[in-house]
């Protein structure tokens, strides 16, 4: 097989992915410990919020493989991709495959819900999200319940995601973890990498995301 090393994930997408894992794990652990560590839980939350906004913007004006328009496909193509799972041939996508594309959307959706509800949550002790003062205790309790319940959804999706990566590794012999680490996939040589973006664009996007989070919480980070 004449496969070629093709650059698919820019450094920003890779950093987003691995930082998100670190922050989700930290958020989970600090929430489980609770009490005085909730301060750091909120810190993780702001970090995740910044990452999610960055990813949303990067999906609109970022590098090609990161763009939603590149990997959001219609139902017919998704069904074909599902049927394609039977074949043990590696797939040759320059971005997420049609199934994975929708999983990205699902992840971002769950994370937005998680971030938004956390802002209003309370722990019935002495920790409150930065926007807790804007709602009644009853509303906050409900949003806290959503925050807890939605974390189970997130956990379920993470498990599905990890199992899927394992499936592609074993069944289709695709090194997706390696690609997310190095940025390179081994693809048929007809696929040429089109990953490029301006030098300042990602920094500007990151700055924009940080500003948005600051505005959302009114600069009251509860730190």
């Amino acid at each position: 097989m004449s496969n070629e090393k093709v650059y698919v994930w820019d450094i920003w997408i890779r950093s987003f992915h691995w930082l998100l894992i670190v922050l989700i794990l930290s958020a989970w652990w600090t929430a489980r410990e609770g009490g005085l560590l909730m301060k750091y839980h909120m810190f993780c939350g702001y970090g995740i919020g910044i990452l999610v906004f960055f990813r949303l913007f990067w999906g609109v004006w970022g590098s090609q493989s990161a763009k939603f328009s590149e990997f959001i496909r219609g139902p017919r193509i998704v069904v074909r991709a599902i049927l394609d799972l039977k074949s043990r041939q590696p797939e040759h996508y320059l971005t997420h495959n049609p199934i994975g594309g929708w999983v990205v959307i699902a992840f971002l959706l769950l994370l937005v819900v998680q971030f938004a509800t956390g802002l209003f949550a309370n722990d019935d002790l002495f920790n409150e999200g930065p926007l807790y003062a804007n709602v009644t205790k009853l509303t906050s309790d409900w949003l806290t319940w959503v925050h807890h319940t939605n974390f189970n959804n997130l956990t379920a999706l993470i498990i599905i995601h990890v199992l899927a990566i394992f499936f592609y590794r074993v069944w289709k012999r695709e090194h997706l973890v390696g690609a997310m680490l190095s940025g390179y996939k081994y693809l048929r040589d007809k696929n040429a990498s089109k990953i490029r973006h301006g030098f300042f664009l990602p920094f500007a996007t990151l700055l924009l995301s940080i500003v948005i989070i600051c505005v959302i919480v009114n600069f009251r980070f509860n730190l």
Partner: peptide, 23 residues
């Protein structure tokens, strides 16, 4: 004081997590 406060509130959370309806 801070340390002992942390120890005490962790006990509050312990029962909230184990024995209280999630709402």
């Amino acid at each position: 004081m801070k340390r002992q406060f942390g120890v005490t509130v962790k006990m509050c959370k312990g029962c909230h997590d184990e024995y209280r309806v999630k709402h």
